[in-house]
Simulated assay, not measured.
Amino acid sequence: MNVQNVLKEKQKIINEHLSALLVSDSPSHHTLYQAMNYSLLAGGKRIRPTLFLLVLDMLGVNSSRYLDIACAIECIHTYSLIHDDLPCMDNDDYRRGRLTNHKVFGPAMATLAGDGLLTYAFELLTSGSQISPVKQSRLVY
């Protein structure tokens, strides 16, 4: 298997896992979750989580057990992009060929979406039972 195929396979796994994460069962949270997913699922190369999983594979660790951590990395990255695009920062209109979050949902909701992704990343880092509480606290630290 060549490098391109390995990267595409990891990207596919990460995308599938990400798409199942942020689902609201509360109608009052619908717009927030929609804004979070709008940017999180907008595509991208998923380089950061892919590299994390590949390093685990190279170390002989079952990387599939650490998908939540890989997705937490992507949540943090996406949060930074949403906030970077805001009118008070770079005021970008497009990200990855699509309207930026604040252009679709407004600056306030985009700020909340970014904040929500950052906070959710910490939940992902600390919710896995396969990792000891000591290691979870180190991940957060």
Results as ranks from 00 to 15, higher is better:
residue 124 L to S: 10
residue 68 D to F: 03
residue 128 G to E: 15
residue 77 H to M: 11
residue 26 S to M: 10
residue 22 L to I: 15
residue 138 R to A: 04
residue 64 S to N: 15
residue 22 L to Y: 04
residue 7 L to I: 14
residue 92 D to G: 10
residue 135 K to L: 14
residue 16 E to N: 14
residue 112 L to N: 05
residue 141 Y to F: 00
residue 23 V to T: 13
residue 54 L to N: 12
residue 5 N to A: 14
residue 66 Y to R: 06
residue 138 R to M: 12
residue 112 L to P: 07
residue 100 T to H: 06
residue 28 S to W: 01
residue 13 I to T: 13
residue 26 S to G: 01
residue 139 L to F: 15
residue 117 L to S: 08
residue 141 Y to P: 03
residue 122 F to H: 03
residue 54 L to C: 13
residue 36 M to T: 00
residue 101 N to A: 08
residue 123 E to G: 07
residue 56 L to I: 11
residue 88 C to S: 12
residue 90 D to H: 03
residue 98 R to L: 15
residue 120 Y to L: 00
residue 97 G to P: 08
residue 140 V to R: 01
residue 56 L to G: 08
residue 128 G to V: 01
residue 98 R to E: 09
residue 94 Y to D: 07
residue 43 G to L: 09
residue 15 N to A: 13
residue 117 L to W: 02
residue 107 P to A: 13
residue 2 N to V: 02
residue 3 V to W: 04
residue 68 D to Q: 08
residue 74 E to G: 11
residue 69 I to F: 13
residue 114 G to L: 02
residue 71 C to A: 09
residue 59 L to G: 11
residue 2 N to E: 13
residue 96 R to H: 04
residue 54 L to F: 12
residue 70 A to N: 00
residue 2 N to L: 04
residue 11 Q to M: 14
residue 70 A to G: 15
residue 98 R to I: 12
residue 139 L to E: 02
residue 36 M to D: 07
residue 87 P to F: 10
residue 109 M to C: 10
residue 130 Q to V: 09
residue 74 E to L: 02
residue 96 R to L: 04
residue 8 K to D: 14
residue 87 P to R: 05
residue 108 A to Y: 10
residue 10 K to Q: 12
residue 11 Q to I: 07
residue 53 L to E: 07
residue 30 H to S: 14
residue 14 I to C: 07
residue 83 H to A: 06
residue 48 R to T: 08
residue 16 E to D: 14
residue 29 H to R: 05
residue 112 L to F: 13
residue 36 M to I: 07
residue 53 L to R: 11
residue 25 D to P: 07
residue 4 Q to D: 14
residue 63 S to N: 14
residue 127 S to V: 07
residue 100 T to L: 02
residue 22 L to W: 11
residue 115 D to L: 01
